[in-house]
Each structure stands twice: as structure tokens, then as C-alpha cells.
Design a protein around this nucleic acid. Sequence first.
DNA 1: CCAGGCGCCGTTATCGCTAAACCATGCGAC
DNA 2: GTCGCATGGTTTAGCGATAACGGCGCCTGG
Lengths: 342, 342
Amino acid sequence: MNGQVGSRRTLTLRDVSEASGVSEMTVSRVLRNRGDVSESTRERVLEAARRLGYVPNKIAGALASQRVNLVAVIVPSLSNLVFPEVLSGISEELEDSGLQPVFGVTNYSAEREEAVLYEMLSWRPSGVIIAGLEHSDAARAMLQNAGIPIVEIMDVDGEAIDSVVGISHRRAGLEMARAIVRAGYRRIGFLGTKMPHDHRARKRMEGFEAGLAEAGLELADREFYSGGSALLKGREMTEAILKRTPDLDFLYYSNDMIGAGGLLYCLDKGIGVPERLGLAGFNGVDLLDGLPRRLATMDACRREIGRRAAAIIAGHSETGLIGGERVELTPVLQPGDTIRVA
Amino acid sequence: MNGQVGSRRTLTLRDVSEASGVSEMTVSRVLRNRGDVSESTRERVLEAARRLGYVPNKIAGALASQRVNLVAVIVPSLSNLVFPEVLSGISEELEDSGLQPVFGVTNYSAEREEAVLYEMLSWRPSGVIIAGLEHSDAARAMLQNAGIPIVEIMDVDGEAIDSVVGISHRRAGLEMARAIVRAGYRRIGFLGTKMPHDHRARKRMEGFEAGLAEAGLELADREFYSGGSALLKGREMTEAILKRTPDLDFLYYSNDMIGAGGLLYCLDKGIGVPERLGLAGFNGVDLLDGLPRRLATMDACRREIGRRAAAIIAGHSETGLIGGERVELTPVLQPGDTIRVA
DNA sequence: CCAGGCGCCGTTATCGCTAAACCATGCGAC
DNA sequence: GTCGCATGGTTTAGCGATAACGGCGCCTGG
């Protein structure tokens, strides 16, 4: 507009106060809608603020009021669909709570998690939402001492610091194994990621093996990958595992994306799904809806997890209460078309 | 560790200073690695800080030093793959610049963009990276007056406020149209999103139509969607458009995801690709690598855009220079297997 | 007619940290 | 011996907002 690109210094309350002829305090009150101000001065102040293009300085505000409307959200990754969806849930729920989410990404590294957490806590947020229950000792200590509500999300298999919202991945694996066994499959392979720090994938696999063990079975083969296009990796891994162990009759994938790759591979090769070979993934991503056949999966309740976690933080910030809540959601099996009906 | 969950009040520099017997100023210097401090006192201070579990208060620090190591990053959505990848590029580049990205999401709404921007600017970040060149007047004014480097990303077709990093979507559409015409296709349909605020998709379509016009052609049909699983929508839309206009010989999709859905549909129905019907999408998502056939597409240089934008901000924050840079990347056509060779 | 309450607004004192200026040593050079 | 200067630290004065309290009219009721 007025091309005021490099105004000498940024505006402060004082500028607005001078421009409108009232004290800084009154300006502050108007801008925050707090306290009594007459309608006429309110208008005058707002007009001046608008005209100058004043943007309040929350840094100063936060320091003075000892209140910060930020919620730290720490997740391991944005590159698969699962976390973006959690973040959406959080954003939605926080929308009109006056709170604002701030995201940090750890790349599945405990070290980076610690660094990101430290950085975020140093802004004194009013709450933390963090993925997983496994943290370094230092990170746990920071969280414990922060004196703000902490919500660990995604996973409930373990001990929470404060509140927790998630599903039992162990149980998810277990149930899937039972369903597979029930359907009559016996030679079962597992395909997953190589990441040692993806604790939830690990727990699913452990649960899965426990489920097989109930029927006296164990995994006939396994295949791991890291990096690259998950869909393509799914194809490649499927080819590899079937070449190595041709008599497998079921493949359990640690996520839907590689599962979808496997499904496409099987369709390509004319492998009979689900009769000759059954398939299942995990997550319930809506990508699956577009596939030629619907992959069996389990919904991880991602959006709901985000929402519930955010609701807990928002609740605490209103009531000031502190107290660990525990919310365990139960994912449901979506059999799709890739498990034969028993 | 020591279960100090609700410590009476949060620690300050003063606590560390008392615990280590030096002044607050010295503690501050140690913690910031700035200024000369003897090795012995440094150790003493660090030990005390660690023991107490002190986390510095950046709010106070930022206020005092007038420096904030935050970069505001504002994107329209996280739910398709494109923006997460941009964000990764930004994170990577900023990794060891001392700067930290903070993300905000607008859901393709100008109103929300304005609100998010206002909120973020009120934390006085040292730079802004924002998607697109189209903003409300108020938003433009805020950006102009912020006095910090602004980088508009993704798109270069328009007037930038400060710096800009992106590709020409108009040109991307144009080139794709030319390639399609060159390959001999004549009855061409367009499939895209209904979102009026996705300016880049609009520009691609405009460029595409201009490219067709060069050959005296125009779009034979179009189909739009909103919401839902893009892959599934791609199928449905493809079915719909082919039913309505059976003699189409090419389908141009505004993104790879719906394109992939279309491809799967054609394979299902046994439609001859690319002879009877050619297909192309846009983005170059690596999902495509796993498909039975590789969809023709154009790489949007997402990660690179993120990196370059971040580099500009980081550069400014080091040198203090202000000056608009313009970086236009050129996406290359990846013909894949769904355009017949001329 | 005056005490008390309310509406409206200003004054003062922080909030926790850092920039900048300022001091106290000790040590070598002349 | 004295000056100069580095080294290692302290003191002082904000940064830009808000909390808490106070004061001044004006109205109302007893």
C-alpha cells in the first residue's frame, strides 16, 4: 500500500497510544478486549492501530503476563500420511480455544527429539503433545519438570508421564494375527521398516508374533526396508520375500503404503488374492479406497487422537487442573478384500 | 528423575547464578557461549544448570536481545504430499543455521492466512516463508511492514513482495500441453480440484489451455472434485468424464494422486494406455514409482524450493542485507509410460 | 448532602533476560 | 614504577508488554 517496507523501527504500543491520545495501558486493553473501555475510545484506538498497521508483540506480552498461548507438538515425521492427519486433528480442536499449535519434527531420532523439546520448552508453551512413550532420560526429566500438561500420543503401551491418548499397537498386532489365523492362513510373512526407533511398529510386530504364538505359529519370513517410495518398496519387498519363501500364504505389512505396493505387485503377477495369498496393512489411510481391491487394515484413529490430545490441553489451560488422563482408543479391523472370509 | 513434577515456580537465571556463585550475566554468557568465561566457572555454571534442570526462557531472551530465531512458514495444507516435502526441505536447510521453522496452515483460506500470519508476526520471527503470491491486502501490508525477509514460494507467476522461489505453473501447464499435442493427441480433457483458492492449479490449467490454443485446440471436457480420497476421486472422475465424452484421447490431471487413480481405473477397464488414451499428472510424487505403469508428470521441485527459500532467509539473517531475490526453478517433464512417443 | 459504587483510564512495578558500559585484577613492556 | 591491555567478571538500564492498584468523575440511595 504505502510502500512502507523498511520502516525505521517496528511499532509499539506507545506509537498507537500517541496516535490515539490515550495511555498504553488503554490501548493494550482495547487490543485484548479486556477490561472496561468506552466505546468511543475503543474505536479511536482500533482505528489508529489499523492505520499504523500495528501488530502486537507477543513476546513482551507473554513475558509480562506469564502466559503463552502456544502448544508444542512434537512428531517424528511428516513424510507419511499419518502425522499430518494427527496435526489436522489438533489444529481443528484448538481452532477456537485461543491456543496455537507449533510443530516440531524429530525424524525418529531421540537426540533430535531432545533438542526440539528443549527448544520448544524454552518458549514456555502451555502444553506439550508428543508422539510416543519412549524418550531419553533428559527428555523425560524436562517434561516432568515443565509444570505444564503433557500428552503423549499414538501409543498406550507403556508408562505415561502425564496424560496419554492412543491405541495399543501391541494389541493391534495381536488382533490382526488372530484374524489371520482364524481365516486359515498358516505361512505368514512380515514386512516392515528398518527403523529401530519406530517403537510403535516394533510393538505391532511383537503383538503380531504373540498372536501367532497363541496358535502355535511363528513368522515364516520377514523383510525390512528403509527410505524411498513406500509403494515401490512394497513391490520390491514383496517380490523378494516371495522369491525367498514361495510358500507364504499371508503377508502382514507394517503400514498401508507398502501394503498397497504389495497388493499392486500381486495383481500384476496374477497372484490370487486373497485365496492363494492374503494381505494386510496398518493405518487405514484413505488412499486405499482408490486401489483396485481394498487392502485389509486397521484404522489407527489418527485424527481422533489429535483431537482428543488437543482437547486435554485445552481443558487444562481453562481449568488449570493438572492430572493425567488416559484415553485408549480401539482400532477396528477393516477386512477389505484381501483376507479370505473364514 | 527426582519426581519434581510441580516445582513451585520455574527456574530462572537467578537460580542458576545463586547455585553456582556467579552473576546472572555470567551464567547467561556461559549458556549462550558468548564472551569470555574461564573454563572453571563455565564448568561450574553448566553443572549447576544441568543439576537444576534449567531451561532458558527464550521469551525474555528474545525481548531483551530483539532477536528471535524463528522462521514462520505458512502453507495451505498438509494433507497432500507436496507441502510436507517442502517443509522437509526447509527443516533440512535450517538445521544448523540456528534458525527454527514454525509451521502454520491456512486450509486454502485467505481469511485464515491473514489470521495465521498476524499470529506469527506477533512473535517477531526473523523471516517468513509463505506459499503463493496471492494474499489479501491486509496480509500484503503486514508482510511489507514487517521489516524482515519474506519469501513467497511455489509460484513465480506474479508480483513478489520481497523474494520468491518457485516454478511457473503457467509454463508447466503450457509445456505439458505442447508435449501432448506433439504426441498427436487431439481430444483432451482436464480433471482438477474445485478449490477456487488453489491459484497454482488454476494457473496450470490456464497455461495448459494456452498451449492447446497454440495448436488451435481447446479442452474437450473438464471435471472437478473436492475432498475425499484423491485416488478414489481420480477413478470416479475418470469414469465420469469418459462416460460423458467417450472420444477423449488424453486426460490431464491437476495432480498426481488423482492421475494415479485415473491410471488404475484405465488399467482395470482394460483401456489402452497410452495408445487409445494418454494420461498425465503433476507434481512428481514418488508414489508414482510404485504404480504398475509410470504416470507422465512434471516435477514441482518441492524439496528444492523449500531448501532455496530457507537458504535465503538464513542468508539474510547472517548478513542482515535486505533485497528481493528471484529464483525460478524449471520443472522437467517426466514422460513416464502414459504418453505415446511421437 | 454525602458515602459508596461503578465506569473509565492512568501510574507504577515487574516479567527474565541481554547489551553495553564499567570495574578489578594480573602481567609484561618500557 | 607506571602505563597499557587483555582477561574475567559485575552493574545498570532497558526490551514491550501486562498486573495491580489508584484516582477521578458521576450517579444513586438513604
